[in-house]
Amino acid sequence: MPMIEIRDLRKSFGGLDVLKGISFEVEKAEVVVVLGPSGSGKSTMLRCINLLEDYHSGEVRIDGETVGYRINDGGRRIARPEAENAKVREKVGIVFQSFNLFPHRTAIENVMMGPVHVRHMAKSQARELAGGLLEKVGLADKAHQYPATLSGGQQQRVAIARALAMQPKVMLFDEVTSALDPELVGEVLIVIRRLAEEGMTMIIVTHEIHFARDVSDRIIFMDGGVIVEQGPPDRALASPSSERLKLFLRRYQGDYLAV
């Protein structure tokens, strides 16, 4: 059974169709990188997986369980209560482009938030878990600093630790290096690659093509709300079959004259 199953996912904002029928599966321990121009629906698709965005039709399953809706005996789509959605979100970690750390909490308190307030873990135990995770992302010495005093790269690593503290089965990364200064990108990507090596199931939306080649088992290229092409990275990135992916890669590989 695949860890993530997405079937004919559709979503629109107002009259604008953002996702026009997305289907793919992600196996356990598989790393899928999603590429695509801005506005192609990548982030929306990612946020539908843990229901931060509602979707209009189709189906998302995590570990076999439907997300957001279930189908009743009459075949009708019934919205799940918020408590059930929260249960699903516990299994799915997400890291955002804009970090979204809690500014009124220190680094370690950010990481403790889920274990303490969702799992109801004792504070001492949560502190130990959080300390270990901060060490894993190389920030043990910043544990008691507030987010505002950390660099972007450090904040993003705290955000990864915060998501990992819930021991998720799946990790989603939504352009996590796009808001970072170039010299800070590496430290975040290294953490993500280590997670991949440990066998975490991941969907990574990124514009870092080299990283995508390096870390992914499969590339999915989205444009205009549909999947245009997918395949293993060496094939998809080296010899793309669609015109749109070719053009996209030319642009992102520094050929600024490519139009």
Binding site: G93, N100, M113
Partner: peptide, 8 residues
């Protein structure tokens, strides 16, 4: 969104 994503 960040808080929800932790399952809060």
């Amino acid at each position: 969104a960040a808080a929800k994503s932790l399952g809060m």
